[in-house]
Design a protein around this nucleic acid. Structure first.
Length: 141
DNA sequence: GCCAACGTTGGC
DNA sequence: GCCAACGTTGGC
């Protein structure tokens, strides 16, 4: 089981819209960055991820689950780009803001803090637990 | 709206 | 294969 973080601007794809997709999930398309793509390639069914709102909100608002392995991104003809499908699992009761994360020394190594431009990033098990508890979730949904 | 950081492109 | 120029992301 691995953990991830998915970033999205609420203007283009919000947590509300993700939740509206329900169990069917949604392909995480539009990624045109090799690192982010490689991360998706490493995902397995059942991996969990944080859903983070960038630009507006700047907080972790939900938990998602990978429900389809990496496959071709149908929004482009370029075969280089793939994406996974994710589905909403639950809300984060107390959204964890970027400021909260930056203020927590245990999270100083999070990619979110150190490489803010990477839109799909790995999260360590320790970081996962910490952010969950900050968000009011007993880790292991 | 601005700007810093980063990634990508393309000329050499 | 290097590096300058450019484009994009995302926090502030």
């Amino acid at each position: 089981m691995k953990y991830w973080l998915f970033k999205s601007e609420p203007d283009s794809w919000s947590w509300e819209r993700q939740k509206a997709k329900g169990k069917a999930g949604q392909q995480w398309d539009g990624v045109r960055n090799y690192q982010a793509r490689n991360n998706m390639g490493a995902m397995e069914i059942g991996d969990l991820g944080f859903f983070y709102h960038s630009n507006q909100g700047l907080d972790v608002v939900g938990i998602v689950e990978v429900c389809a392995l990496a496959h071709h991104d149908t929004t482009t003809d370029d075969p280089r780009w793939v994406c996974v499908d994710i589905r909403a699992v639950r809300d984060v009761p107390k959204p964890v803001t970027l400021n909260d994360i930056k203020a927590n020394p245990k999270l100083a190594d999070m990619v979110l803090v150190n490489n803010s431009r990477l839109s799909v990033q790995p999260v360590s098990a320790a970081e996962w637990k910490e952010v969950c508890s900050m968000g009011g979730i007993d880790p292991a949904p």
